[in-house]
Amino acid sequence: MPKADHLQGSLEILVLKVLRRGPNNGYAIATCIEQTSDEVLRVEEGSLYPALHRMTESGLLKAEWRNSEAGRRARYYELTAKGRKRLEEEEKRWHSVTAAVAKVLRTV
């Protein structure tokens, strides 16, 4: 079974968001998430790669081997139209959920 961690639910939306800026490889995606979140969010690679493959298989991403800037072969992921749509939905849902949670935390 995939290891459970606190990012489990939100990893997908983060990956989609990062890839929104353009195709990238797994390492860069992980680094980007970590740096943007000021190291608050740590991406477990054991979750990232299975997630990437799962998403590729369900058609949210497409993958391709390319030469990276570092000159080595790396697998690059790119958003598909379906992925882009999913990102929009997920973002909307995320905002409404976090807003709702914040409201509960404030008022109760």
Binding site: N25, G26, Y27, A30, T31, E44, E45, G46, Y49, H53, S68, A70, R72, R73, A74, R75
Partner: peptide, 28 residues
């Protein structure tokens, strides 16, 4: 494929100044 991808990942980590051993530890 995953193997190769992971190798790239580890190599990049090492290049970014992280100790490859440390990377492995965190990575599992």
């Amino acid at each position: 494929e995953i193997e190769e991808e992971l190798q790239y990942h580890l190599a990049m980590k090492a290049q970014d100044g992280l100790d490859p051993r440390a990377a492995r530890v965190r990575f599992g």
